[in-house]
């Protein structure tokens, strides 16, 4: 957890009135959030509440129907912005890792550096190796994703985002596809990133983890934010009845 007071006043990630229709279905019905630089925001809500779609709107993997997303003060939902440059600055970690199965761990991490950051190959590989070392995978550089455990794969995915030196990282349920004994190794990595001051938006239902790491908690329900606030407050004294019901299920 870091102190945001000495940072620039413009939030790192800001969403203004995001709405999304999927073939006529109103998935997101006007979402506003603001995540300061170095802050960790957690999104919670039952499945189908739109939190995942919203997260994907933040780097335009999904195009919001209405509303604006601002990253570091620039509007990225503008049609004139180069979406690839924005995505390079925002890491994303998926629920089922989505590593490239035809590449080794090192190649997975180096791909973006070579083809997006345009680094020379050797330099990119050094940077990729350094990123993999940060997630404690220095011994597995030459392994293919199939040769790694789920936890290791997810850490490669985090390293892949990390190597791009992003301004923020989005996590879409990073531990929900993992066996219980592998969850903590991934959460430890995320916790370290938080301590280093990385701005992150995390969809997660790991209460204990969120309590330690997340600065603000945002509750989604049916395409709307029903409650938001400091993590401990929302977890312990939820105000909205939906939140209360959800917390009861989680315990």
């Amino acid at each position: 957890m870091s102190d945001a007071s000495d940072e620039t006043p413009a939030p790192m990630i800001e969403a203004r009135g995001i709405q999304k229709y999927f073939s006529g279905v109103h998935i997101l019905r006007g979402i506003d959030i603001s995540v300061a630089s170095g802050e960790v925001a957690a999104l919670m809500g039952r499945s189908g509440s739109g939190k995942s779609t919203f997260l994907r709107c933040l780097n335009r993997i999904e195009e919001p129907t209405y509303g604006d997303v601002l990253i570091d003060g620039t509007i990225i939902t503008d049609l004139r912005t180069d979406v690839n440059r924005i995505r390079a600055d925002i890491g994303m970690v998926f629920q089922d890792y989505n590593l490239f199965p035809h590449m080794t761990a090192l190649e997975n991490v180096a791909l973006g550096l070579i083809h997006v950051r345009k680094l020379p190959r050797s330099e990119a590989q050094d940077a990729a190796a350094a990123a993999l070392e940060r997630v404690d995978l220095a011994d597995h550089l030459a392994k293919y994703p199939q040769q790694l455990s789920g936890g290791q794969q997810q850490r490669v995915a985090i390293a892949r985002s990390l190597a791009m030196r992003p301004k923020a990282i989005l996590f879409d349920e990073p531990t929900s596809a993992l066996d219980p004994e592998m969850v903590h190794e991934v959460l430890d990595v995320i916790r370290t990133l938080a301590a280093e001051g990385m701005t992150m938006v995390v969809i997660s239902h790991e209460i204990g983890f969120l309590r330690k790491v997340a600065d603000q908690l945002i509750m989604f329900d049916a395409g709307l934010v029903v409650e938001r606030g400091p993590t401990a407050r929302v977890l312990d004294e939820p105000e909205h009845e939906r939140t209360r019901a959800f917390m009861k299920v989680l315990r």
Partner: peptide
């Protein structure tokens, strides 16, 4: 090729051409 592969490539900032060349076609 699973959709997630394309999403992961695009999320890295790879354009459609680079995604096709480096991620989709090899698989």
């Amino acid at each position: 090729v699973p959709r997630g592969q394309i999403e992961a490539a695009r999320a890295l900032g790879l354009g459609p051409g680079a995604t096709m060349r480096h991620v989709i076609l090899p698989q």
